[in-house]
Design a protein around this nucleic acid. Structure first.
Length: 573
RNA sequence: CGGGGCGUGGCGCAGUUUGGCUAGCGCGCCUGCCUUGGGAGCAGGAGGCCGGAGGUUCAAAUCCUCUCGCCCCGACCA
């Protein structure tokens, strides 16, 4: 490709829309442009990178017996009604009607359509296992798209679905995908750490997310340096505290006037106590019925854990009216003493003594509240957000925290969709059983963004060889020097003939401009052709990653490049 | 959806508080000269319904009302 013809408009300045480095560089390097919030047009260089990542994914999916399919993006509402998600998905689903008024959505994911596809064809255990995957656009009307490709409303995703006859076979599918993911991200040039995760709306219980650690990540990952335990913070298990020795102080329960003090900060400041001596009483509506959750003042409730503990379908914070009706007090003064609704308490509550709690009366709190004496708890459970510094649930270590970008996730779905949608097979004994499913996603665009987050310097992107849009750029210092121009064109033809992906910067620009663009776009290898070295029969090879440069005889340029492409940059020393 | 901010040539911004006469600057773009190992210089030039609609006024980028879009923080989510 000739640089003069390449449609890759680079920018000297960063458009104001971009906040994080990968987003800025993708715009500046001319990989993509925004068309609407959370939607992007890929330009030639950006598309080439996307395609390379897709190809790596394809190869690894095929290697574990995945078969590629292409599924509709526009999906009929009926399928989603069968699974129950037409109602559950809410505003995040793009919905549309055809001219007859029939309802459709732009697929946010493809469980329904793939299950429908499989149920009509799979009859026998002999057809299993089956692993199907697709790579295509998905649509989610995110409440807050952000950070370029990191969280778009239109995004490219690879999804594989596995169909198995029993849990053991599902286990094989799951771990095959898990290990394929390790290879995929490694080949793409990023470290992605598998962590235990929550399965969210997709369903199922066993699931891992693949996280690229980066400050711009939207998730908090907790990991234990001692034993290797790693989990998304929303999933990370809490450890019930060991029973504290010594009898707690049991002072008399006392009501105090606490005007305007409705938050833990205000109360603890007002009363001169520490937040960890206060109990937060949060009121929720679980399937429409009020329940209270008790959390130590300096902790945060994890709604996912509460939902699991309650085994409820819906869970939402109670509205002000419900709180008033249930506790007799406005928001901020609820407490466990005298409450008649079920009380679910985090383990940490077990060890509190003489705590500060709401009095269920406006502008009043109770001090010296004690478990058993003053209130009883329905159930103790792990309800709080686990944080860095908390004990590891698997060993004696202490958890540390890091931000992570979720580039992939693998789920064991079980029979949630196959039961709801009637995807069954007959086993050897002729018994009809639901197929057992798994699903395995990779955000393609997000992976590209994550690669850039981890592979850049102040000059621009540093593409790993495997996914670089082009491997080599040839930069003649001056195209007006006929010797340089000729040598450049000759090398260009030779590299192309050898199957090397190469761009020739044939523009009549000053060398500085060409170097800056080459660095910004991030070609892994650059061959600079200048008059001085050319006279000595040499050209200069430069590694983008290390800036290492060396003059080599012209006849050695092609072999050197082929070696680097084959054995990696580090082989060229 | 709550809070905050921003919409002015392709990009980055000034001008808006205190309406005023030809709407500016840097970068980029076009032409010519010159220059060629890290975003050169000189000269000339093109390009803007000031997001949109309505209103106030002799006069609106600037004031008022409504509206659309975008970004950030939060809540939420494979």
């Amino acid at each position: 490709m000739l640089m003069s013809q390449l449609y890759s408009p680079t920018l000297r300045e960063t458009p104001s829309e971009a906040e994080i480095i990968s987003h800025k560089l993708m715009l500046r390097a001319g990989l993509m442009r925004r068309s609407a919030a959370g939607m992007y047009a890929f330009l030639p260089l950006g598309l080439r990178v996307i395609r390379k990542v897709e190809q790596i994914i394809r190869e690894e999916m095929n290697a574990i017996e995945g078969q590629e399919v292409l599924l509709p993006i526009v999906q009929p509402a009926e399928l989603w009604e069968e699974s129950g998600r037409w109602g559950d998905y809410g505003d995040e689903m793009f919905r549309l009607k055809d001219r007859q008024g029939r309802q459709f959505c732009l697929g946010p994911t493809h469980e329904e359509i793939i299950t429908a596809l499989v149920r009509s064809e799979v009859r026998s255990y002999r057809q299993l296992p089956l692993r199907l995957y697709q790579i295509q656009n998905k649509y989610r009307d995110e409440m807050r798209p952000r950070f370029g490709l990191m969280r778009g409303r239109e995004f490219i995703m690879k999804d594989m679905y596995s169909f198995d006859r029993d849990d053991e076979a599902l286990d094989q599918s799951y771990w095959a995908a898990y290990h394929a993911y390790e290879r995929i991200f490694q080949r793409c040039g990023v470290e992605a750490h598998p962590v235990e995760a929550d399965s969210g709306a997709i369903g199922g219980d066993v699931t891992h997310e693949f996280m690229v650690l980066a400050d711009s990540g939207e998730d908090l990952v907790l990991f234990c340096p001692s034993c290797g335990y790693a989990a998304n913070a929303e999933r990370a298990e809490g450890v019930p505290p060991a029973k504290v020795g010594g009898a707690p102080a049991m002072k008399a329960l006392t009501k105090v006037h606490t005007p305007q003090a409705s938050t833990i900060e205000q109360i603890s400041a007002f009363l001169g106590v520490n937040p960890e001596d206060c109990i937060k009483t949060l009121l929720y509506l679980a399937d429409g019925k009020p329940v209270a959750a008790l959390i130590r003042g300096d902790h945060n409730l994890n709604e996912i854990k509460l939902r699991k503990t309650l085994e409820c379908e819906t869970l939402e914070l109670a509205d002000d009216d419900t709180i008033l009706a249930t506790t007799g007090a406005p928001v901020g003064f609820a407490g466990p003493v005298g409450l008649s609704i079920p009380l679910y308490a985090d383990y940490a509550i077990q060890n509190m003594a003489d705590a500060v709690v709401g009095a269920n009366e406006g502008d009043h709190h109770l001090i010296h509240a004690n478990l058993d004496r003053d209130f009883a708890v329905t159930l103790f459970a792990d309800l709080r957000e686990t944080e860095p510094g908390d004990p590891c649930p698997r060993c004696v270590g202490t958890l540390e925290g890091a931000r992570g970008i979720e580039v992939g996730q693998v789920f064991k779905l079980g029979t949630k969709y196959s039961r709801a949608m009637g995807a069954t097979f007959l086993d050897e004994s002729g018994a009809e059983k639901p197929v057992i499913m798994g699903c395995y996603g990779i955000g393609v665009g997000r992976t590209v963004a994550a690669v850039i987050e981890k592979n850049h310097d102040q000059d621009g992107i540093i593409w790993p060889l495997a996914i670089a849009p082009y491997q080599v750029i040839i930069v003649p210092v001056s195209m007006k020097d006929e010797a340089q121009a000729q040598a450049a064109r000759k090398l260009y033809q030779e590299l192309k003939a050898a199957g090397v992906e190469v761009v020739l910067d044939d523009r009549d620009e000053r060398p500085g401009v060409k170097f800056k663009d080459a660095d910004l776009i991030g070609f892994p290898l650059r061959v600079t052709i200048g008059s001085r070295s050319l006279e000595q029969g040499e050209m200069e090879i430069v590694l983008r990653r290390t800036k290492e440069k060396r003059n080599v005889p012209i006849s050695q340029v092609l072999p050197d490049i082929e070696t680097i492409l084959k054995d990696g940059e580090s082989s060229w020393v």
